[in-house]
Write a protein that binds this DNA or RNA. Structure first.
Length: 828
RNA sequence: GGGGUUGUGGCGGAAUGGCAGACGCAGCAGACUCAAAAUCUGCCGACCAUAAAUCGUGUGGGUUCAAGUCCCACCAGCCCCACCA
């Protein structure tokens, strides 16, 4: 037998013909839902990242299948998105055509991987059968008040006259034409994920997720406990009032209400509506100019504490509610509209950014906190401890008491309260693009915003659309799409011209898989409760904050709508690492450092490639590509091939390595090796540590080779050990293992065999070598009975002549024995 | 700027706080061979002629009987930051 791609093809055909991996919804085995993050069909070929993620997660799920789980393992495509549209703009090939073609190619390649996907459950998000339910759910969210419209900035290229994605903005310029990108405000749809901020936070500790991912989510939600305080506004010498004649209040969130008496100015985000309202006629021109400047700066740069602060006076003043001080209101870009209330109280004496700004613009600086009474610390003094000064009735209070006292006082005036703020912002889902789910809303001049009636769904994405960028959403230019009748009044109306963020598609696909052909419902509740949540979810760590949070939000919203009965979509999560180019850089076509899996598959077969991916890297860390180690697997597979011939020649009668154990010492050694390999490999595969699992298999192969060399080797014992090796290797080399199984006359299929169990008693050795240390330094090694207790070990060690020599007359202070490992003697 | 993360032989990488370098790749030596390939055996962190000893997990501190592992500071690299997916 000689393993090659032909063997891959032989078994792929047989698996397909016999529907070996067909999922049985009615099985009474325990359900296990194993899911990899689905892929975006951008290029025509599967890249190395897909292979790394999918092939090895498939190995994991193959083991689970052999362990007796009813494994649900579907695959599909995240098929809407910007790249297909960009490709279309460049080449004229319609996104639907290129996407469908890419999906076809990728499906074929995924089959060539030899994975256990059941293609009956496939889905593609760009099909009306799928996106209909995006629209349906959008309307449900709208009905619940969880979808709403507000103004938000977009990146705008004034030259191309179009909206740009962040990735299309390179150093503040349009990637196509190089013009300077500005921020433009548009009315857009948001999902109110902030309603779930607290629950999203509360459920994190119970998730079986990587700690770092939990940390990222916790920080992303960013709960902070503080206070909201308010100031009235004076504009042109008069109190500013709203349309109803009520005084306008500037609401400010702060974690440092204790410093409120030191507030000497207030800052508003320049792009906010509030800023426009506050700006006086005299200052209008300067503010407008400043807004033009800031519209070019990214949020990340704006929040940087090292960047030089800039700002401009709005002409209005805020009135401090406690001391009546009239403080100027400035517009400055270190405050961001979408963040908190978009207004900041500035206390230059106790905040670095405020201090820098105040010094630059000559604003007043008043110390209100001292580290201890009478100590004039250098300003800004930002430590979170101290006592108050220059704060009238609050002088002398500890700053923590002062927060309570000041907020309590403000509260009696209706000007402040304790408040929890979250860094998390609502999810902006409108995209001014073609290749996505149309937003199922109608804008009627009479009735306002009206949802499309459920029976009219899906709102189909039209095929013939001009999606070249020229200033409008592509759908807005498609007359047959955009013009419609209002479902309420029947009058002429227009559809929403935007499409949804593709993260909407990927926030609930994990549920649709389980009921992917349901034409009547988003999914059947009983079915989803039975099949979901996902038991093991595997994908890139780059999704730690957004995709994974959005999917959790959708699950909770669906639960509250009664669509399903659990709280979290993904019980257990693993992130595979990133395989970089051999230059240590991220792989990209432009850098020319990509690796094509197909080249290796053709040359070595998919099993060699998969096993190498498992062996050559720490799965969770990834690392630079290097195929030198591939030889390790080539040699490993060849050795097994040769052994197969030897073993197949022996009688097929089943024997256990343990049977021979009583007979010979060599058989006993082999039996130990078999059981150790099974135990360790099983545990390692379970925790996605494939490199050490395969290392244990190599050790077992070495042990089998050694046994084979012994003169008294029993062919049946050899065969039994070899079969165990093939079984535990089978998840990584499925075609190869299937071929061996057939060669051995063991029938079809090896994947219907049970995963081998190990025998703990075979792992108990009579003696064990331990290290003897004095004060932590190794002196010598010694064999002891493996069941010896500390007293017995102490006696054995003390009786050894080497011990006296090493002790050199010192006294024994303490004797520590770590079972089966070492003895450490503390000596003085 | 904020958040996350990594740092171990020539290389990929192992190591529940317990003998650092498992398992391999590459390399070196030997066996087999007319020869080569393949295969098999042995060696393979530094220092050192060799052995012993000593040193050794980015740097500097600390905790501990014991630190690659835990804590603090620093250095270097990588990833993410809300319109890429």
């Amino acid at each position: 037998m000689r393993y090659s791609i032909d063997i891959d093809r032989k078994w792929q055909k047989k698996w397909a013909d016999t529907e070996l991996y067909k999922f049985d919804e009615n099985s009474d085995k325990k359900k296990l839902y194993c899911l990899e993050m689905f892929s975006y069909p951008s290029g025509a070929n599967l890249h190395l990242g897909h292979w790394y993620n999918y092939s090895l997660t498939d190995s994991w799920s193959r083991m689970k299948r052999m362990q007796g789980f009813n494994v649900f393992h579907p695959m599909g495509f995240d098929a809407f998105g910007l790249p297909a549209e960009n490709y279309a703009i460049k080449t004229g090939i319609h996104p639907k055509d290129s996407t469908m073609k890419n999906i076809e190619t990728m499906e074929k390649q995924l089959r060539e991987m030899g994975a256990t996907f059941d293609w009956n459950y496939e889905l593609a998000t760009c099909t009306p059968e799928y996106y209909k339910w995006n629209q349906w759910f959008f309307i449900k969210l709208f009905e619940k008040g969880l979808a709403y419209r507000k103004n938000a900035p977009v990146n705008w290229c004034p030259s191309c006259n179009t909206v740009l994605a962040n990735e299309q903005v390179v150093d503040g310029a349009c990637e196509r034409c190089g013009s300077e990108v500005i921020h433009k405000h548009m009315t857009q749809w948001f999902f109110k994920i902030t309603d779930y901020a607290q629950e999203l936070l509360d459920c994190i500790p119970d998730l079986d997720w990587p700690e770092k991912t939990k940390k990222i989510q916790t920080n992303w939600i960013g709960r902070s406990e503080g206070s909201q305080v308010a100031l009235y506004v004076e504009k042109n010498g008069e109190e500013l009032k709203d349309e109803d004649g009520n005084p306008v209040k500037l609401e400010v969130f702060t974690t440092r209400a204790d410093t409120f008496m030191g507030c000497t100015y207030v800052v508003v985000a320049p792009e906010s509506e509030l800023c426009d309202k506050l700006t006086t006629d005299e200052c209008r021109e300067a503010v407008e100019e400043y807004k033009r400047q800031t519209s070019k700066v990214t949020d990340i740069d704006r929040m940087s504490t090292t960047r030089e602060k800039t700002g401009v006076f709005t002409g209005s003043y805020a009135i401090h509610p406690l001391n009546g001080r009239k403080v100027p209101i400035w517009a400055a870009d270190y405050v961001i509209a979408g963040y908190g209330t978009g207004v900041v109280m500035a206390v230059p004496s106790h905040d670095e950014r405020d201090f820098e700004f105040a010094k630059k613009y000559g604003l007043e600086i008043i110390r209100v906190v001292q580290s201890a009474p009478g100590v004039d610390d250098e300003l800004p003094y930002c430590e979170k401890s101290g006592v108050l000064v220059n704060s009238g009735e609050f002088d002398g209070l500890d700053m923590h008491e002062a927060i309570d006292a000041i907020v309590a006082k403000l509260n009696t005036m209706g000007m402040g309260e304790k408040k929890v703020n979250y860094r998390l912002r609502d999810w902006l889902i409108s995209r001014q693009r073609y290749w996505g789910t149309p937003i199922p809303m109608i804008h009627c001049p009479e009735c306002g915003v009206v949802p499309v009636p459920e029976e009219d769904l899906p709102v189909l994405l039209p095929y013939d659309v001009e999606f070249k960028p020229d200033g409008e959403s592509p759908l807005a230019k498609c007359d047959s799409f955009i013009n419609c009748k209002c479902p309420k009044c029947g009058g002429d109306a227009k559809r929403d011209p935007d499409t949804m963020d593709t993260f909407v598609d990927s926030s609930w696909y994990q549920f649709r898989y389980a009921d992917n052909k349901n034409a009547d419902k988003i999914f059947d509740k009983d079915k989803i409760n039975k099949m979901c949540p996902v038991d093991k979810y595997v994908g890139g760590a780059e999704h730690a904050s957004m995709h994974l949070l959005y999917a959790r939000f959708f699950t909770k919203a669906m639960r509250d709508m009664g669509l399903l009965d659990f709280d979290e979509p993904f019980k257990s999560l693993v992130h595979q690492g990133v395989i970089l180019g051999s230059d240590g850089q991220k792989m990209s076509k432009s850098k020319g450092n990509t690796v094509m899996p197909d080249d290796y598959i053709i040359k070595y077969g998919s099993d060699v490639f998969r096993t190498y991916l498992g062996f050559g890297f720490s799965y969770i860390d990834g690392g630079p590509w290097n195929d030198e180690g591939l030889q390790a697997i080539v040699k490993f597979i060849r050795r097994i091939e040769r052994l197969t011939e030897d073993v197949a020649a022996a009688a097929p009668a089943k024997a256990d390595p343990a049977d021979g154990a009583a007979a010979t010492a060599s058989a006993k050694d082999l039996n130990y090796a078999v059981n150790y390999a099974i135990k360790a490999a099983t545990a390692d595969i379970d925790r996605f540590q494939f490199n050490t699992a395969i290392a244990r298999m190599m050790e077992l192969l070495n042990a089998i080779g050694k046994y084979q060399q012994t003169p008294d080797a029993d062919p049946q014992v050899l065969r039994a050990a070899f079969e165990k090796l093939v079984l535990i290797l089978s998840p990584f080399a499925p075609h190869f293992a299937e071929e061996i199984w057939e060669t051995l006359g063991n029938g079809y299929s090896i994947f219907n065999e049970e995963w081998p169990e190990f025998d703990e008693s075979a792992l108990v050795l009579d003696t064990v070598e331990i290290a003897v240390q004095i004060n932590g330094k190794i002196q010598f090694k010694i064999n002891i009975p493996s069941d010896a207790d500390q007293a017995a070990v102490e006696e054995i060690v003390k009786a050894d002549a080497r011990f006296d020599e090493a002790l050199a007359g010192r006294n024994i202070v303490k004797f520590i024995y770590v079972k089966g490992r070492l003895a450490n003697i503390v000596a003085k």
